[in-house]
Design a protein around this nucleic acid. Structure first.
Lengths: 144, 144
DNA sequence: CTACATGCAAAAAGTTTGCATCATA
DNA sequence: TATGATGCAAACTTTTTGCATGTAG
């Protein structure tokens, strides 16, 4: 599940994009982040390695990675762009109080429809489930 | 499935919020909109009835309605806040070819988990499911 | 009459763009 | 060397906030 610098070079060749130092560091750092970081969070981390990097470059390259299918965009109940590095089949638990998002394996979620076709003829490829609710931390706080 | 002005008054009483002219008009107009309008779209419509209304008021009240559970927030592949007025529990079918989005009733979707708590202690309020697949129109195109 | 809602304008947050400079292929 | 990437700053979009005024309960 880990990509070496060589693999990143290959990935870039596959997608016809240039291998720059910024992209390499950006990719490695994102690869090592878990969850669904925002561009600002990624920027903060990358700046430690490349202090001169600009936020615009981070945005441009996150978009590039998403368009290339290297990472996936997650549009959750945040107001901001979020990226997903985890490629295993899983779903998301979104806390309605603190807006935190965590992953849950499809198997741990339990029952899911197994139709191939829905009424109306829609052909199912996969499900993307957001579980909306309250995370353990906020449940603890909630007990006013 | 339609709410009269009287019902809105009751809804407000239930949630302990004041019945203002702005809220009443906002509610009625949103009720009459289908799809997943953005705050700007709602604002444009409401301004026709109350030209002096401010965008801030629209935002404040949309949030109020969402927090009260009168409407639901929808996180789609937009970058902006979207609201859902359809009060029947339903989910979304997203076509991976043409990107069209249509609704499907929760009942028609079939089996869905019924946990109150997930492993890890997350307290489930509701599920928001995107069914990714191919719509009937694109299936037809695909064969040809 | 009091607490809360509104409108306005300013500010904050998030994201995109234009352009001169620089690095990769 | 030429194309495309970067950094910077300004512009833009979306959303939030503070405050004076207005209105529902």
């Amino acid at each position: 599940m880990e990509f070496s610098a060589t693999t990143f070079r290959e990935l870039c060749q596959q997608h016809g994009i240039a291998v720059t130092h910024q992209r390499q560091v950006l990719f490695e750092i994102m690869q090592g982040m878990h969850g669904h970081p925002s561009p600002e969070e990624v920027y903060a981390r990358v700046k430690k390695k490349i202090p001169a990097i600009s936020l615009a470059t981070v945005y441009k390259n996150i978009h590039l990675f998403v368009e290339s299918g290297i990472f996936r965009e997650v549009s959750m109940h945040h107001g901001t762009l979020r990226v997903e590095m985890n490629s295993r089949p899983h779903h998301h638990m979104v806390c309605s109080m603190c807006k935190s998002i965590s992953d849950i394996d499809e198997a741990d979620l339990g029952l899911l429809p197994s139709h191939q076709k829905l009424p109306g003829g829609f052909l199912v490829e996969r499900y993307a489930v957001d579980v909306i609710g309250i995370c353990p931390e906020c449940q603890a706080k909630k007990i006013n």
